[in-house]
Nucleic acid binder design. Structure first.
Lengths: 194, 194, 194, 194
DNA sequence: TATGAATGAGGCTTCATTCAT
DNA sequence: AATGAATGAAGCCTCATTCAT
């Protein structure tokens, strides 16, 4: 599915500048309040009128999707870099998880939004695919290297993806130093994979 | 915190029958739609007027809590039985996870509700405590038996609890037979613990 | 209009005892909250069920009327005693005002209720008549004694009645000692009459 | 307290036109039904949607305040003109009372609303102050001119203010010609002051 | 007859979406 | 094209009144 289906395209530069402002504002507000965030608040933070949002995004749902997709892509881009390194698969998993955790720190509530999106919407397939891609490649790599067990990579990937979750992190934060969390999670995941 | 804080108590049979009908309807509707469920819909499904719900539950939030607590207790009761068996700790973990998964199958969206509840409400502490109790005992048991590694039991328990999650299960359902899910999850968890 | 029109009559003693309990409770609650008072609160204070109130008083309005009428009659009875004394009319007015103020102290918000009742309901005529009766007699007396001016007694009486008002008293309370209020009001009224 | 606290300000012409329409409609409806008036009815009479009212007035209470304040100010403005005339204090009182009575005729139930407002809300102080201001100045003037007695002006003012009351006027209307009411009230008040 | 649980119309308020400027 | 004011359906909750026990 193309980006054009999410935000209405325009040839004007200022219009596209607005789309960008709206997306940035939406990220900030969705991060704090999740899908409950009000359109008006996003408009205010973006410095545009609500009407402008509706000119660019057919409805609230589409804006949510658009924001979700952008983050997904941000995630993928970072992971791509990790996956191209020449280190053992378990090292890569650690790196990928680190990226994930950074993004969680950055996007808060948005993670939940993505999970919901990936389940309930027509974009689900797309989102799942993007997120899975890099992880599965790495898992297969690990299996070939004999580091990971021979379970279906898709399934292992589902576990990994699921573990890197805002609510788990929140929970762990109350029980350990924040900087230890990535290692702890990676340890658990890698044991699960082995 | 006492149950009386959740539903207004009454000595009358008919009143309590209605409380029961409301709770059952709420479970069904919450299962489908989560906290977004409308009071009117619950009332209709319960076969009572909205006023009846408000007579027994101060507001919607309290009804959510009440339903949550009841499920939590249902979970605990089942787990208690497992934990008293004389089998190795890893066996118990498998059993406990089986129970969990059955309940997830039964309660759907309600799981998300519980997670949210356990984070944001005054009942959180209580809920976390109930859910943790049995698991931690078993984890400690496993550590004494030398089956599980010596990480802080609270942290291990957080992982286990987190993995048994509606969205993971939903995801796995699209990739494997439903009856295989419990074993797959248990395998992953037990590896993570070992 | 007869009392029977207000509370449904009953031959049973316990029923009449309930009417009494309800009326007393209603007075207390109306005093505090005015007509906004909830039936359930009155029932609770009376120690009866709401159903019992509705058995005796067709609806809330009738209960309000009944309470109003009873107070009106209490007022009249006290005034009757004053008016039969053999003192000059201005003395009597002072005494009558004293009674009024005592009742205001006793009944608070109910005074406003009576005012409203006397204007908007079929009982208005009756209430006005009872309240006016004694005052007008005294005013006429004063006019015959040459103490009061010869304005229409009904009109003078309207002024007197109006001045003895909960909100005025409340206001004065913030500016003078409570025990001085009756005299201050009486002074003003008597000047107005002279 | 500033007007901005009552209605949300806006620089747009159409918005302010609506605020005006809402206030006018509210005056009319409050006049008839007092605070019990329904928001929907006001919206309908104003020819706007309910949402429009809520865009400008945080809640119903604020709308009541806003209407109250506007009337209070209308009263004060008229009184200011009277008080600046060079006539004896008793003449001024007559004029001020005339204004009051005109406004009562115009605003009906709203008078009760103002009384309640001046007692129970954060605006009370402000309202009392505005209403008192002019009257007290005139009373003091009369005392200096030897026309009024030397009672505390605040107290005398309380009486005057209290007498000019919707319910008294309503009552008098049933007993005399409407055009005679102002004189009758003024006569009584001035006697009370002398 | 007395009880209090049940009812549901009706009120307040919110917010995604539309539309006039 | 951009704005933000306007809209109104829809949700939560209250409470006078009814009705089953």
């Amino acid at each position: 599915m193309e980006k054009e289906n999410l935000s209405v395209p325009s040839s004007r530069k200022d219009a596209n500048r607005n789309v960008h402002k709206i997306m940035e504002a939406a990220k900030v507000v969705f991060k704090e309040k999740g899908t409950e965030a009000k359109i008006e608040e996003i408009a205010e933070k973006a410095g545009v009128g609500v009407g402008t949002i509706y000119r660019r995004f057919v409805n609230k749902e589409r804006l949510v999707w658009a924001v979700g997709m952008e983050i997904i892509e941000e995630i993928r881009d970072k992971q791509r870099i990790d996956v191209d390194l020449s280190v053992p698969a378990d090292q890569k998993i650690r790196l990928i998880l680190d990226e994930f955790l950074l993004l969680h720190h950055k996007y808060g509530q948005l993670h939940e939004m993505l999970i919901t999106l990936s389940q309930d919407t027509p974009f689900g397939e797309e989102i799942r695919h993007i997120l899975s891609d890099v992880l599965q490649v790495t898992i297969r790599e690990g299996q070939e290297q004999g580091i990971f067990r021979n379970e279906d990579p898709e399934i292992l990937e589902a576990f990994v993806l699921h573990i890197v979750n805002a609510s788990l992190i929140k929970r762990l934060r109350s029980q350990m130093d924040v900087e230890d969390i990535p290692k702890t999670i990676a340890d658990f995941v890698l044991k699960g994979l082995s």
